[in-house]
Design a protein around this nucleic acid. Structure first.
Lengths: 200, 200
DNA sequence: TTAGTTATGTACTGAATAGTATATAACTAA
DNA sequence: TTAGTTATATACTATTCAGTACATAACTAA
């Protein structure tokens, strides 16, 4: 498919704009974020927004897709980066807490957990994206465990799938607690115990 | 405080109305639920709504408070009702899955997790209510474990607090998965393993 | 240059929004 | 009965909303 460019080029970087949209949706919610809120935060005009994303829903779906596919999710990245499996699990839990609490008041928790999930039954296409995000994260976590098993660092009967889901689900609890204003240090007091449990 | 009643009495049961409001907010979200949506579902007129709850936010806070304080939360109630602790934990997990998946499409998951949490940073008073809800649930769960310890059904060093939070956090994962359309049977395949882990 | 194409800026539209004014109905207390 | 009080019903208002029309600016291809 040869890309033939004609006409005036777009004046903004679409990825930058979508990143900004994530922030707006995250802090205000889908219904709470008006087009004016968005255009102001994204630094583009209304017609540009509609030309690039068709409508508000189009921008929202695009934001979710970007959030899912980007390698930005710190807990997951840190889990995969740490060489020692115990340290990796610990990093996942710690990063989950930090990520959920460090951002501004409106962006506490997790974009998927505390924003997207609200519209899963309301906006066409959201539920599918959310489901894909969950299943892919489960797989990524389990993959690492399988690798450790192959290397003999985990017992052969280690239930990678179940443990992956366990870690994921625990993270949702952390996201909700962060959203409720519960502090990082409070949550971190349970990390060590949980890591031991996950690897038991 | 002697209640002196004067004038025309309210024609609707306020608790019934608030219950209906929970359903509307849960399925449409706070911003997504219009006053017209609400009055229609509650079967009352606009002026009645404003007279009884001051404004939309007042009704929302009232709905959250009722959801928290009511004994309706099935997982918690079943956890407290079962006599055997292992069966009780199993009941909690199973009921969490059933409760999150059995309701209509808009009401999947959990009202607190998948609706209220979205507005925690946006509407004055919501974060405090959410936090209270979490802390009280943690306490209720831990209390049961402490009771079992006193009766010698759990080891003396059983970390009731940590286990309570664990159960709560797992439930949030279940709520999110339900919201994403993941089925109850799929989630139930992990219950036995998780129960064993909680009581280990 | 020039024709064709696309993005942007301004200004707008019709619909939906939260909240209210006013009149009336229905109750209580005496 | 009657005066006082409160809920309801209808109808409204001012605002905000998502989405768009139209003119203009800026680019590409030739």
């Amino acid at each position: 498919m040869a890309e033939i460019k004609v006409g005036r080029p777009r004046e903004f970087d679409i990825d930058v704009v979508v990143d900004a949209a994530i922030e707006v949706f995250w802090s205000k919610g889908y219904d709470g974020a008006s087009i004016s809120d968005l255009t102001q935060a994204l630094g583009i005009t209304r017609p540009s927004l509609y030309a690039a994303f068709k409508d508000k829903r189009g921008l929202y779906l695009r934001a979710i897709e970007r959030y899912i596919s980007s390698e930005e999710c710190p807990p997951l990245v840190e889990f995969e980066a740490e060489t020692d499996i115990r340290k990796a699990v610990t990093a996942f839990m710690t990063a989950s807490i930090d990520y959920a609490t460090k951002k501004g008041d409106g962006m506490l928790g997790c974009f998927l957990s505390n924003c997207v999930s609200t519209n899963a039954g309301e906006i066409e296409g959201v539920q599918e994206l959310l489901r894909r995000a969950i299943e892919e994260t489960d797989k990524r976590l389990a993959k690492r465990f399988e690798l450790e098993k192959a290397n003999g660092n985990l017992p052969a009967d280690f239930p990678s799938q179940a443990k992956a889901k366990l870690m994921f689900d625990l993270r949702q609890g952390i996201a909700l607690r962060a959203r409720a204003g519960i502090s990082a240090p409070t949550m971190k007091s349970d990390v060590e115990q949980r890591v031991a449990m996950i690897l038991a």
